[in-house]
Design a protein around this nucleic acid. Structure first.
Length: 774
DNA sequence: ACAAATACCCTTTTT
DNA sequence: GGGTATTTGT
């Protein structure tokens, strides 16, 4: 009955007419066809920007299913973000049927691993309800480790400790392996912390991001039968953005494809921008060496950008030494000149770009949704936001996690995690007294101390607070009451204290979230929060319920398609899925295409996307390339690739913008345009300088011709001796006005020539006769 | 227990 | 500068 139903073509022809081989390959170029139809054996697709790579991958999945008759559940496609996965599935479902596209596995490495681990949790000694720790959970765990070990966070800041641990994990080094090869003081110390950190996570039945990969590799190693099962399941493996895979990811892909050898890697070494996160560019460069009989296809024709934009990108990337050369070319039109914009400061920069956008929107009918602004650092978005808001232009920011980073949301989610995973100490302690319920810091501390003394977990002790020494009855009652509440919430969700399953759990997910938020007191707390008169935080909690509702709807739809006549989705399953989605959410996942709004995002987030109009802001030395990569040639090349990625996102128009002065941390600093701008061929762009500066002519004693000696500049003619609170005594060399500000070059006795803004610098005019400089 | 004050991280990029 | 975490004061 079931199989009959499944095989029946009626539904399929309803949804989409079956496409023939010809249709599937129609409009593809010769190399694209080769990439699509080479289904057996290892295949490397080196795809330049805008070369139709996504189309090739989706066509390839469709070809496998429709043409080769491969069952969709044998196909695994790994993407870099959830959003990319969703879009790819969407596109595949346009060619094959909805149901077939859903039977194929299309997801990120991390969600694949999260699911594998959940399925085989018992083999790893974990409950299926294990928690996934995000950066802030990790930080708490690291802090706890440091505290227990009595290590000063001054010398070992949690962030850098975690960075070291993450690097080790990406190289598949567990705590013991790391300790084994630690030979200096610092790494030995890290090894100790690593071990403790692992203990805390173990005890909490929790995994961090890197563990998802690490534990999967461990599972494969220790349980060859599991691996064999998965190899049979995923006979065709495709990995996108292969240039950004790290060692652990390489091992996973490699292991899955080891039996059938049908591995297809797509990517572009010139777009490798995650080296800092452990991505190993050698994975793609060595593909042909690792898979001896690999076919390599190069996609070099660009369908996205104008000739000028592509030429600029190509000229830039030629400056990198360690690369495989590609002949990028396009049949597209010549296009407009690239605009290299120089503004006075970041506010002016933002205004100018908004003005350009408005002009394009008005004169050329370019929709807001076709425009994007990229920057190196998230903090640059703020000025841009202000400028867009001023003009009433709709915009969206790729910061999906920002919502889940809010304190009230983190707390709410911590409740859910603590309920689902009864061992999750980090999340339990986060909310044990939030809102306050008479469980003071002191109570928690003594619980932890007594747990440590009797060698059990803090949670076990909290279940029997009367065993904690020196605890008054009030505190004991408060703890008992709270633990009882937790128990009650678990019952409603159909969970027991071991994270196992009970019957029940029939409430809907959003209703359940609402119930917990109301019963735990968070809602009341924020309803009465005087520091938040607009009730913004309360509204955010409401948003969380809405997103739970959204998730439940999608989930039910999916399940319905998969196992139609099976039991209704259990609350417990949905809760697990919801928490997983929250944990693995990425910034770009939140952005929606065709939303009719300007998109703001970091250069990293922009990978894989394209826009009609692109503005890159803050293209200054120290920003792009970033300060922290100035001294390392490899890192500098990665910055150049980042710039390359940004440029190649643009279809028709590209604005590369810098400001002469940028305020970072409230400190205004002079900047220099990025060296990358100088690497662009001059005939490809036109410069617009709106900084009204005199280009820093350093002639002595000559005031800028344009700048009238009015206002503040009248007080400081060239030649004036001044005293600066920090730099001491100096002589003004020249003065120039820049709109609102007045800029001066001042030669100091101690630190040499400094550019200063007279309005900001607290300069004091001194008379050399009255006060000799010593 | 709560409000206010201070201290302290932050800012390179993220699954 | 901006927000959160920790502390101090009432």
């Amino acid at each position: 009955m079931t199989s009959d139903f499944f095989d029946a073509p009626i539904e399929d022809s309803f949804e989409q007419p079956q496409q023939s081989n010809q249709d599937l390959l129609k409009g593809l170029t010769e190399p694209q066809v080769e990439a699509v139809t080479t289904t057996e054996g290892p295949l490397l697709v080196l795809a330049g920007p805008g070369s139709g790579k996504t189309r090739v991958i989706t066509s390839r999945i469709a070809y496998l299913i429709l043409e080769c008759g491969i069952p969709p559940w044998n196909v695994l496609a790994i993407t870099f973000t959830n959003k990319a996965a969703g879009e790819m599935r969407e596109r595949v479902s346009k060619v094959v049927s909805q149901r077939q596209s859903e039977a194929a596995t299309i997801c990120t490495f991390h969600s694949l691993c999260a699911r594998i681990i959940r399925q085989y949790a018992d083999k790893l000694g974990l409950p299926p309800s294990y928690s996934i720790y995000d950066t802030s959970d990790q930080k708490r765990a690291a802090k706890q480790a440091l505290e227990v070990l009595g290590i000063d966070t001054k010398n070992f800041p949690p962030a850098s400790v975690l960075n070291a641990i993450s690097n080790a994990k990406n190289e598949l080094q567990n705590a013991d392996a790391f300790a084994g090869q630690a030979d200096d003081f610092y790494s030995k110390k890290i090894a100790t912390i690593y071990k403790k950190y692992e203990q805390i996570l173990d005890q909490s039945h929790s995994l961090d991001f890197d563990d998802l990969l690490l534990k999967t590799v461990q599972l494969f190693r220790e349980h060859p039968i599991v691996l064999a099962e998965l190899q049979e399941r995923y006979q065709y493996v495709m990995i996108d953005e292969y240039q950004d895979t790290n060692h652990a990811q390489f091992m996973i892909a490699n292991a899955l494809a080891a039996r059938h050898k049908n591995i297809c890697a797509t990517g572009d070494p010139d777009q490798s921008i995650y080296g800092w996160r452990g991505a190993n560019i050698q994975n793609i460069l060595d593909f042909e060496a690792i898979y001896a009989n690999a076919t390599t296809v190069r996609l070099e024709q660009n369908y996205r950008s104008t000739k000028r934009i592509l030429a600029a990108a190509d000229a830039l990337i030629q400056n990198n030494s360690a690369r495989k050369h590609k002949d990028l070319w396009t049949d597209n039109e010549e296009g407009e000149l690239i605009e290299v914009l120089t503004s006075r400061d970041e506010r002016e920069e933002a205004r100018q770009i908004v003005q350009e956008f408005e002009k394009l929107n008005c004169d050329e009918n370019v929709a807001w949704g076709e425009m994007a602004v990229f920057y190196r650092m998230n903090s640059l978005s703020r000025v841009m936001e202000d400028a867009l808001r001023d003009r009433g232009i709709p915009y969206q920011i790729a910061r999906g996690t920002a919502f889940y980073d809010r304190k009230e949301i983190k707390d709410a989610v911590a409740y859910l995690r603590a309920i689902v995973n009864p061992a999750d100490e980090i999340n339990l302690l986060r909310i044990i007294n939030m809102p306050t319920r008479g469980i003071s810091d002191k109570t928690v501390k003594s619980a932890q101390a007594s747990a440590l003394a009797s060698n059990v977990s803090s949670i076990q002790i909290l279940m029997q607070p009367e065993l904690i020494p020196n605890l008054n009855t009030r505190a004991i009652n408060s703890v008992n009451k709270f633990m009882g509440q937790l128990h009650h919430w678990r019952e409603v969700a159909g969970l027991n204290e071991e994270g196992g399953m009970l019957t029940g759990g029939t409430m809907s997910l959003p209703d359940y979230v609402e119930l917990v938020l109301s019963e735990c007191g968070l809602q009341d707390y924020y309803r009465n929060d005087k520091s938040d008169p607009d009730g913004e935080r309360l509204a955010n909690l409401g948003e969380l319920i809405t997103s739970a509702q959204q998730f439940a709807e999608d989930y039910v739809a999916e399940i319905d398609n998969e196992i139609r006549e099976n039991a209704p989705a259990l609350l417990r399953e949905m809760l697990l899925g919801f928490l997983e989605q929250i944990a693995l959410m990425s910034d770009v996942d939140a952005i929606e295409s065709d939303q009719g709004s300007v998109t703001l995002m970091t250069l990293h987030a922009a990978k894989g996307l394209e826009f009609n109009v692109v503005a890159m802001i803050g293209v200054e030395d120290g920003m792009l390339p970033h300060d922290r990569s100035q001294n390392d040639e490899n890192e500098l090349e990665e910055e150049r690739r980042l710039c390359f990625v940004g440029i190649t996102r643009a279809q028709k128009r590209l604005i590369i913008s810098s400001a002469r002065y940028r305020t970072v941390f409230g400190q205004t600093m002079p900047t220099i345009a990025s060296r990358f701008i100088k690497e662009l061929p001059e005939e490809l762009y036109e410069s617009t300088d709106l900084s009204a500066d005199d280009f820093g002519s350093s002639s002595f004693g000559v005031a800028s011709s344009g700048g009238q000696a009015t206002g503040i500049s009248a007080k400081y003619p060239a030649g004036t001796m001044v005293r600066h609170p920090k730099f001491g005594i100096g002589r003004i060399q020249n003065v120039s006005s820049m709109g609102g500000h007045t800029r001066a070059q001042v030669a100091f006795n101690t630190v040499g020539v400094k550019p200063l803004i007279l309005e900001y610098a607290k300069l004091e005019v001194i008379n050399i006769e009255e006060e000799p400089p010593f």
